[in-house]
Design a binder for these strands. Sequence first.
DNA 1: ATGCTGATATTCACCAATAAACATAGTTTT
DNA 2: AAAACTATGTTTATTGGTGAATATCAGCAT
Lengths: 143, 143
Amino acid sequence: MFIGEYQHNIDQKGRLAVPAKFRKILNKGAVVTKGLDDCLFLYTTEEWEKLAEKLASLPISKSNTRSFARLMLAGAMDVEIDKQGRMLLPDYLRKYASMKKKVIIAGLYNRLEIWDDLKWNKYKKGMESKSGDIAEALGELGV
Amino acid sequence: MFIGEYQHNIDQKGRLAVPAKFRKILNKGAVVTKGLDDCLFLYTTEEWEKLAEKLASLPISKSNTRSFARLMLAGAMDVEIDKQGRMLLPDYLRKYASMKKKVIIAGLYNRLEIWDDLKWNKYKKGMESKSGDIAEALGELGV
DNA sequence: ATGCTGATATTCACCAATAAACATAGTTTT
DNA sequence: AAAACTATGTTTATTGGTGAATATCAGCAT
């Protein structure tokens, strides 16, 4: 499904061109929402509905699951891909993820993540320095 | 499956010709990922799917599994073998493995590894001098 | 050796995707 | 109603990916 890392620009009107290879699948409908680590999550409508149900069924008694569900559910917005393959990112989401112009679109199998490019690169640097742990984790997954 | 060591060149557009004997099997689709020791891993789509499913099913609520999945999934890219037997390596992966032009393609049974030739030769030298220790370690594994 | 075959390397030309500027229609404001 | 603004759509230029053609090289057979 979604895979890879892509760099794209947001235009003056707040529109973002999605990588050409993902357009077909996203044309049926997509949902953007506030993600974790200051990025945005983008799901197909289908995937989103699965997730939304899970979120809605979380125990409302626990304060942290409650706020996590709120973040994702209340922050969500359905977006359309226009004829040129762009989607309009609402202002409040662009602000949430502190996006200026250059953004990174990252494929994470069942979702896309949209990052401000500076944040992405910082995050990645931090991660790659820990690659020793990764080797071990890979072992556990049977690679 | 994959076996042998081959030296190939990356062309101006970032394309790499894969050894002719592997084309047939890779034609169905392949995935390149960030490997260990600054090289790239190349899997058949089939092999990759197994891993990706596992990664995607990790809980997104935990910060370290989240970043691990990000690194592996976003770091991967699905590639196609064109009619001339070449595949396009995305910029960010070539940078990751610090590849210029000459690269080594090494068969490791269920995956291919792609190395910058300089790194490969350094690495190999280091290994060969340690081969005594390695032999002992193998003994412990019962080989 | 010579010529043949298949594989790799390199170059050029074309087409599709992206970025950016511009145009239009529909709303809101005064 | 006119001006300004917003959202959406269109056009163009540039970039980069894709395909085709040619050249080079190695292995093999005659």
